[in-house]
Amino acid sequence: MIPSSITDNIAKVQHRVGLSAKKCDRENDRILVLAVSKTRSAEEVREAFDCGLDHFGENYLQEALSKIESLAELPLNWHFIGPIQSNKTRPIAEHFQWVHSVERAKIARRLNDQRPAHLPPLNVCIQVNTSAEPSKSGALPGDVEALAQEIAQMPHLVLRGLMSIPAASDNEAAQRSAFGQLRSCFESLQPCHPSLDTLSMGMSGDMEAAVAEGSTILRIGTAIFGPRNG
Rank of each mutant, 00 (worst) to 15 (best):
R110H: 08
A178L: 05
R115W: 01
N129D: 07
L111Y: 00
E172W: 00
C125E: 11
A173E: 14
A105G: 03
V158I: 15
Q114N: 06
C125D: 07
S137Q: 07
V144H: 04
Q127V: 04
I151H: 01
F179E: 15
P120S: 12
S164I: 01
Q127Y: 01
A146M: 09
A117P: 00
S135P: 00
A167D: 10
D170S: 11
L140C: 07
L159F: 10
A167R: 05
S131V: 08
E150P: 01
G138S: 09
M163Q: 07
A108I: 05
P141Y: 04
A146L: 09
C125S: 12
N112V: 10
E150D: 14
P121S: 06
Q149D: 13
L157S: 13
I126G: 10
A108S: 06
L122S: 06
L162H: 08
P166T: 12
A178R: 03
D143Q: 10
I107G: 04
Q127M: 07
L140F: 06
E145D: 14
A117E: 07
V124D: 13
P134E: 14
R176D: 11
E150Q: 14
C125I: 11
H118S: 13
R109I: 11
D113P: 00
G161K: 06
A132R: 09
G142W: 01
E172Y: 00
A148S: 09
A148N: 12
S137H: 02
R115L: 07
A148D: 12
A132D: 08
R109V: 11
R160K: 15
A178W: 00
P141K: 06
A168T: 02
D113S: 12
S131Y: 01
E172G: 05
N112Q: 08
F179R: 10
I126H: 05
S164M: 14
D170I: 02
A132V: 04
P121L: 04
V158S: 12
A152Y: 03
T130P: 04
L162Q: 12
P141W: 03
N123S: 07
A108M: 09
D113N: 12
K106N: 09
I126S: 10
